[in-house]
Design a binder for these strands. Structure first.
Length: 308
DNA sequence: AACCTGAGCAACCGCAATTGG
DNA sequence: GCCAATTGCGGTTGCTCAGGT
């Protein structure tokens, strides 16, 4: 009868969860935690399989879940992350605190359906709330402002020294090319590296659900025309800052302290890279590959041409 | 009022990865 | 190192409900 290996017991209930079942699960998890999901149904008095309990808790009952419509910032982040990592919903969800992979997947699928059903109309009548017009490569400083909640001066061609971001916590060097790198690095891989790196550095506890802010800022800086210096010289720094003060307060260091720390090292790229990499990877510096740099510079150069 | 249709979403399924004995 | 159990993930299903006919 049972369709699944974990659900072969007799009397396993399926389908929608009742409020009573939810209450039982919540009471059990909040009291005892969830060490082994396969033990949860019996101990919690539920006629469900452990897998179903886990899914219900993760996707619906856990207290830090965030419900309701996706904000424009979240929608945009999903679109951009999907461009980078594809259908890796759990990975995407790790950048949206409180959102589940299932929710994001559902959103994406319904969004895609719309897009498929009305391709021409969407292209012709794109609105600020519709994302058919959003390109994976970011374009405007307004988008940056919206994400970071800061008013930023736009860099100008007359001022080749670009102003620092409002909260320059980290600057990642992408110019210290390791030409000996054998790995076939791509832009995607690089972004993933940076994402992991910032997440680990940001969250000493390695809590995935808090991984978003640095990455948000990383992408936002790219889209805002905050170009890395020395872009024409085959290199530069990718600014990476926090989304807001609340996120900054989570960091073990004081914000001011960090700003000074970064300011003092802003252009000593190899040091920063090694230092940051060393902090999170046990002293083993991440390599940067020329192919990665090419992809990044192409992106930066197109941004540069927009403001010139 | 009855039926149809599609959007939204919760839950399930199967497989892969991980863990533990 | 092997194997079974468990967990995690992405694809898919199917239910509910609102809006249209």
């Amino acid at each position: 009868m049972g369709h699944h290996s974990c659900c072969n017991q007799q009397k396993v209930k399926r389908g929608l969860w009742s409020p009573e079942e939810d209450e039982k699960l919540i009471r059990y998890i909040t009291t005892y935690g969830y060490g082994c999901w396969s033990e949860v149904p019996e101990k919690a008095g539920l006629q469900r399989c452990g897998k179903s309990c886990r899914l219900r808790w993760i996707n619906y009952l856990r207290p830090d879940i965030r419900r309701g419509r996706f904000t424009p910032e979240e929608e945009k982040l999903i679109i951009n992350l999907h461009e980078i990592v594809g259908n890796r919903w759990a990975h995407i969800a790790s950048h949206l605190p409180g959102r589940t992979d299932n929710e994001i997947k559902n959103y994406w699928n319904s969004w895609i359906k719309k897009k498929i059903h009305k391709p021409s109309k969407a292209a012709q009548t794109a609105t600020p709330s519709g994302f058919d017009h959003v390109q994976p490569v970011f374009s405007t400083a307004d988008q940056f402002d919206a994400i970071l909640h800061h008013n930023l001066p736009k860099p100008s061609a007359a001022d080749p020294i670009f102003p620092p971001p409002p909260c320059p916590l980290f600057m990642f060097d992408v110019s210290a090319g390791d030409s000996g790198s054998a790995t076939g690095s791509s832009k995607e891989e690089f972004v993933q590296e940076v994402t992991t790196l910032t997440s680990d550095l940001w969250n000493p506890t390695h809590q995935q659900d808090q991984a978003m802010p640095p990455f948000l800022a990383f992408t936002a800086c790219m889209e805002s025309n905050y170009l890395p210096p020395l872009v024409d010289g085959m290199g530069g720094m990718v600014p990476c800052c926090v989304a807001d003060d609340e996120e900054a307060s989570r960091h073990p260091f004081e914000k001011q302290e960090l700003s000074e720390w970064v300011d003092s090292r802003q252009y000593s790229s190899p040091l920063i890279w090694d230092q940051v990499a060393g902090t999170s990877l046990g002293g083993e510096a991440l390599p940067t590959a020329p192919s990665t740099m090419d992809a990044m510079i192409t992106s930066f150069s197109s941004s540069l041409s927009r403001i010139n």
